[in-house]
Amino acid sequence: MIDQSKRISQKTAPERSARMVETIYGCKWSLTVFSLLAKGINRPGEMVRCVEGLSTKVLNECLRKNMEFGILEKTVYPELPPRVEYGVTAFGQKFLHILDELEKLQQEMDAPG
């Protein structure tokens, strides 16, 4: 007879966070956007001008996905002409740290030896 206190239940992947990582990595522009933000480029027009092949439509879709997950936040300034800037949230900082760790793990896996 197995002691009930020593039983371990089957572990499953965290559904929401796994979907979030998959969606962000699946978006070919998300990592580029994070890199731009890290360099202080936080306005959409400037992002499009800095990255060859990035369209406004695709950028807006990428930014929207990241805002839905709570990784990025949008600041709209009450000015004319309108000014919009994006930034990484506190949660986003944690998430980006995890992505950095995944990249390090990939580099270890790719290293010869």
Rank of each mutant, 00 (worst) to 15 (best):
M1C: 08
I2V: 11
I2E: 08
D3M: 07
Q4E: 06
K6I: 13
R7S: 13
R7E: 13
I8L: 14
S9P: 00
S9T: 03
S9K: 08
Q10M: 06
Q10T: 03
K11F: 01
T12F: 12
T12P: 00
T12Y: 07
T12R: 08
T12L: 11
P14R: 04
P14S: 03
P14E: 13
P14D: 13
E15C: 08
E15K: 10
E15S: 13
E15T: 15
R16M: 11
S17H: 04
S17N: 07
A18R: 11
A18N: 06
A18P: 01
A18C: 09
R19H: 06
M20T: 05
M20P: 01
V21A: 06
V21F: 04
V21R: 04
V21Y: 02
E22P: 01
E22A: 12
I24Q: 03
G26M: 01
G26Q: 02
C27Y: 03
C27H: 01
W29P: 01
S30L: 07
S30P: 05
T32Q: 12
T32Y: 02
V33N: 03
F34T: 04
S35M: 00
L37R: 02
L37F: 09
L37N: 00
A38T: 00
K39Q: 15
G40M: 07
G40S: 10
G40N: 11
N42G: 06
N42Y: 10
R43Y: 06
R43P: 07
P44L: 14
G45E: 13
E46C: 05
E46N: 09
M47V: 14
R49K: 14
R49H: 09
R49C: 09
V51G: 01
E52C: 07
E52R: 10
L54V: 09
L54W: 14
S55D: 15
S55I: 06
T56Q: 15
T56H: 14
K57Y: 11
K57L: 11
V58Q: 14
L59G: 02
N60T: 09
E61L: 08
R64K: 12
R64L: 03
N66A: 06
M67I: 12
M67T: 08
M67V: 13
M67N: 05
E68N: 07
G70Y: 01
G70W: 01
I71A: 08
I71Q: 06
E73T: 11
K74V: 14
K74M: 15
V76A: 14
V76M: 09
V76W: 00
Y77P: 03
P78M: 02
P78Q: 04
P78V: 05
P78D: 12
E79C: 09
L80A: 08
P81R: 12
P81H: 13
R83Y: 05
V84P: 00
V84N: 00
V84T: 13
E85W: 00
Y86G: 01
Y86H: 04
Y86R: 02
G87Y: 09
G87V: 07
V88G: 01
V88Y: 00
T89P: 12
T89E: 05
A90M: 06
A90F: 09
F91R: 09
F91I: 14
F91C: 11
Q93I: 14
K94N: 11
F95M: 08
F95T: 02
L96Y: 02
H97D: 10
H97A: 10
I98R: 13
D100I: 02
E103A: 15
E103D: 15
L105K: 15
L105G: 07
L105F: 14
L105Q: 15
Q107R: 15
E108A: 15
M109C: 01
M109N: 03
M109P: 00
M109I: 14
D110N: 09
